[in-house]
């Protein structure tokens, strides 16, 4: 969990690195940060899940998937609440990067809810099939979420920031693949559950990411208040 929080903190700080980005108000920037945190959790789960260290943490992995889905849902519906004109960006004539964001949200919800033990058995023929689909959907998720973040240009405006973010996004599936090649795949049955610890870890991560997002919005408000 500390690694995830550090990674999210780094990503948020990185978006501020190009200088005086326009502040758009506390709530607007908070919702933007929630979206970035959701993408960060997805990227983190992408490479972490294939490492042997993740083996006893499958429950935490699943819980963090729900955290990512929750943050992304807050990001999308929050905008619809504070600025209803955003609904225009969910229509078929919307820019492709916004439709990519919509696809990313749908895939994230799908990949998360079909991974819960009960529904996993209902939707997939076996664990290997599930794993294959899970990886495929994860790749679609990374591409569409990356397209959305880079396409809007709201968080990463400088070309060097966009280039670096694109490189990191490309590196996520490559790292996951490398982990799998090096350490082999996870066992077919989940390891020891550590249920209470995993649940508490996910709730704590979620709360910390929301606080981090609020801090981000406050910093932007203060830094750019004179603009």
């Amino acid at each position: 969990m500390p690694a995830l929080i550090a990674f999210a903190g780094f990503v948020l700080a990185f978006t501020l690195a190009a200088g005086a980005l326009p502040a758009a108000g506390f709530w607007w920037d908070l919702l933007a940060a929630l979206g970035l945190c959701s993408a960060t959790v997805v990227a983190f789960l992408g490479w972490d899940s294939e490492s042997p260290a993740a083996q006893p943490r499958l429950r935490l992995h699943r819980n963090l998937g729900f955290v990512a889905a929750g943050l992304a849902t807050g990001h999308a519906f929050g905008y619809l609440i504070i600025d209803s004109t955003v609904l225009e960006y969910l229509m078929p004539a919307a820019p492709a990067y916004m439709l990519a964001g919509l696809v990313a949200w749908v895939v994230l919800i799908g990949i998360t809810f079909t991974s819960a033990p009960g529904s996993r058995k209902r939707y997939y023929k076996g664990f290997p099939t599930f794993r294959r689909w899970h990886r495929g959907l994860f790749l679609i998720l990374v591409v569409t979420a990356g397209w959305h973040i880079l396409g809007t240009g709201f968080s990463l405006e400088a070309p060097w920031q966009q280039g670096l973010a694109a490189a990191v996004l490309c590196a996520v599936p490559v790292l996951a693949y490398w982990h799998r090649r090096r350490y082999g795949t996870l066992p077919l049955t989940p390891g020891p559950p550590h249920a209470a610890k995993a649940d508490a870890g996910a709730v704590l991560s979620c709360l910390t990411l929301v606080v981090l997002s609020a801090a981000y919005a406050t910093v932007k408000l203060l830094v750019c208040s004179g603009c």
Partner: peptide, 22 residues
Amino acid sequence: CHVERQSAGEEAGPTRRCDSCH
């Protein structure tokens, strides 16, 4: 133009919120 002016520390119009212009 609004983003450019705001980034330069000048007074500027809306930069993000849709309903500020729409």
